[in-house]
């Protein structure tokens, strides 16, 4: 029998946590092993709870959920931090972009309902949650352009071996393409080697970080 998915629930509101726990606990596939309002002291406890998926609400007692996850990644390491889904009351494209850029795999709003959350957790565990490159491009293009160059990230990209660097160059040329079918067909798994070498959790975060640092701009 496959072991259940260990879930951590973080939300400033205990009633909301109660409801989410009821939803997730109703399925034998899930086990809620950690639950908290997201205070700073939770960071170490999360590290020790062997959590598979963290469901973090944007509203935590210590501040925004995105910042909490960022602190957690700083503490335990980008690769070691559990996969996280951000939740919020309403869907906001800007928040989704920020979340993806900070390593969250997705944003689930209250409007998507409990089934939306359950489905997303299952997709994350099965690895079928990855967005297409076209989705990401449309998402980024719809936002006001933000340039936040991470110099250490840029240096690491410059130092990548030629084979991986050529993959990134191909990504850049596809990104600049006006042919949307070409962008849609792009296989994000070709970035796995780059993801493994760079301080990002997944290919989505890699693209978001490259976009923020101006590495996807056409020159």
């Amino acid at each position: 029998m496959a072991s259940s998915i260990r879930i951590g629930l973080l939300d400033a509101d205990s009633d909301v946590r109660f409801g989410r726990r009821l939803v997730l606990s109703s399925s034998p596939k899930f086990e809620v092993v950690f639950e908290s309002d997201g205070s700073v002291s939770d960071l170490e406890a999360i590290e020790q709870s062997l959590i598979d998926v963290l469901v973090i609400d944007q509203k935590l007692s210590s501040g925004p959920g995105i910042d909490f996850y960022s602190n957690l990644r700083s503490l335990v390491g980008v690769k070691q931090a559990p996969t996280a889904i951000l939740t919020s009351s309403f869907h906001q494209s800007g928040l989704l972009v920020d979340a993806l850029g900070q390593g969250f795999v997705d944003l689930v709003s209250l409007e998507q309902g409990a089934s939306g959350l359950v489905d997303r957790v299952l997709q994350v565990v099965s690895g079928s949650h990855i967005r297409s490159l076209l989705d990401l491009k449309q998402l980024i293009d719809a936002q006001p352009p933000v340039i936040q160059v991470d110099l250490s990230f840029v240096r690491l990209v410059d130092e990548l071996p030629e084979k991986i660097a050529s993959n990134l160059r191909r990504l850049k040329s596809v990104w600049a393409s006006v042919d949307s079918s070409k962008i849609e067909k792009y296989d994000l798994s070709s970035l796995n080697d780059a993801v493994a070498r760079l301080p990002v959790a997944n290919s989505t975060e890699l693209i978001m970080t490259m976009s923020r640092s101006g590495l996807l701009d056409v020159k």
């Binding site: 909301v16 109660f18 409801g19 989410r20 009821l22 109703s26 009351s89 409990a114």
Partner: peptide, 25 residues
């Protein structure tokens, strides 16, 4: 209010999910 309604919605959904297995919940 948004927070309270979030609680209402999540608990209502939680209730629907949980009631099948455990009416007490």
């Amino acid at each position: 209010v948004v927070q309270k309604l979030a609680s209402v919605i999540t608990n209502a959904e939680g209730g629907i999910y949980a009631a099948k297995a455990n009416p007490e919940a």
